[in-house]
Nucleic acid binder design. Sequence first.
DNA 1: TTGTAGGCGTTATCAG
DNA 2: CTGATAACGCCTACAA
Lengths: 336, 336
Amino acid sequence: MAELKQTEIARLAGVSQATVSRVLNNDPQVNEEMRQRVLAVVEALGYVPDARAQSLRAQRTRLVGLVMHRDPQALAYDPFFSALVAHIISTARQFNYHLCVDAARSVKGHRAIYEELLRTRRVDGLILVESETNDERIARLTEQGFPFVLIGRYQPEDAIYTVDNDNVGAAMIATEYLIQKGHCRIAYIGGPAGLTVTRDRLQGYRQALEQHGIAYNPSYVVYGDFSSRGGASAMADLLMLNQPPTAVLALDDVLALGALREAQRRGRRVPDDVSIVGFNDTPLCTMVEPNLTSVAIDIPTLAREATQRLIDLIEGRPVEPKRQIVPAQLVRRSSA
Amino acid sequence: MAELKQTEIARLAGVSQATVSRVLNNDPQVNEEMRQRVLAVVEALGYVPDARAQSLRAQRTRLVGLVMHRDPQALAYDPFFSALVAHIISTARQFNYHLCVDAARSVKGHRAIYEELLRTRRVDGLILVESETNDERIARLTEQGFPFVLIGRYQPEDAIYTVDNDNVGAAMIATEYLIQKGHCRIAYIGGPAGLTVTRDRLQGYRQALEQHGIAYNPSYVVYGDFSSRGGASAMADLLMLNQPPTAVLALDDVLALGALREAQRRGRRVPDDVSIVGFNDTPLCTMVEPNLTSVAIDIPTLAREATQRLIDLIEGRPVEPKRQIVPAQLVRRSSA
DNA sequence: TTGTAGGCGTTATCAG
DNA sequence: CTGATAACGCCTACAA
């Protein structure tokens, strides 16, 4: 079994190794009889070409990389992450690609991964998420002409290939919904401050306030890490204010749930005392009481589009336009 | 930048390509001066060896595979999956390995992945989860002498390398806990019936009943897929019985939550009317009201041990004993 | 101590 | 239409 290569097949079929290769690559020029003879042996022995050799020869691994800018620990229970991975996997597979996942929070660790995955040409392309403003990675990737797609926004638009869920617009919709419900003391719980997604949604939130003539109050903006605890402590801070908010927009469902639970723990009724809106529309939303109103950002489409575009880039097909927007949609439930 | 290989470095440093290779592999025999000269050029150009070439040459990709026997769709929001991936990633990285993830539910799809990952030698070893009894994959892997570690149980024990969280024991502990609380009508909500984990926990459940002289009632055993909805419909079935159970042991937290919500929807109070215990101790447990009592199966350790053992196997280090058990532990909260 | 050369398993280019 | 032959980039005997 260890010696199963094309030369071995060739020997048994009584042809040259080159012919075996041709048969396997469906070269139309090969004689039908030879093809059958070769295929018979291939079938009999269950021969499959060695991906390592193919990778070297073709200068292509058929592997796409996904690097999360996050501590692996923090990823462990993140539904956004698992949804992303799941959908990238299934899309990639349709094109005969596989997924290589990595993660690191530290800049050093991140650079190491970057080196290890990209410079070594271990993967053919990269899907980036959670970019920070002025993300150093993006500059380097662009400079090197390495295929990559960013899930998120980037400026200047059209500088790189992106699939964006229009966070600014989505946050606006959610905020306007709260305003229409009569709220004017609306808070925003973001993720880590440097992330583009945090800033974009903040921007949408502010724009909505502005359009409705509501003054922006900086003490209503709190940042947390992506965890239930982060949401809880943010909510705790908000409730200690002299004029606590009557509604909260949280950057994702996990944060929103933490906030919700904290509010309840402190005796607030949701949505009567405080309304809460999350992001991502994960199954968590229907798992808590009251069910969480959330902005669905359509992770499947995001992942599918990003993957497909990345593969197009890798294989040299034209990709237009550079920026694609996947619409988001507010899913109304009981929490707001 | 495209032409960055050892011959190029060698040319610029005025040495042979072999010397460059030796320097990069820390061969102690190279002259210090040469080493410096080579390293200078390497640094200056930012050269990193090509993983594809190394893979072919070394017959090793430094990639470990994780294949979930599940529809990618179903994986999307599964906390067990994301926790597993996250911890495998960080362990693998310590040993300079990367993770390639795949998933498929259908047998055909699964076999395709198996071929594609293993036979092509795209990965050096495999971590398996969710094995079924008489899992065909395991026989083939064993037969081929391919390095793999199973997370779960397998019989005969010691036939293959496994890391097991002692599901039988864990289910026993949980069931006994319920019995001690005075319950005797205890139901079990499993996952897909074929999975080893479903059967093992059922076995533990039955053993506990037996030891306490409680008759086993088949109508108290229901199977669902791994989803909140699965748990809900299982609970619905249970509550329609003439003598509905007063306690439920669910195969994982997601199922347990679905069950919990369904019970509440039907006006049952938890834990007063019906107690519920889940598995995995995911963050979900503290996100719902009442907080979910759950059996913590220590996914980080499971993942870490499996990864480490797999890498030991790949690199030819002895691994003993073949079967390792990671203890589980009941985390008591309010739902039971 | 360093250089030369062979080969890892493929694919692709040339002759024949 | 098929068979030698040359890369792909790297590591490692073996030779100098």
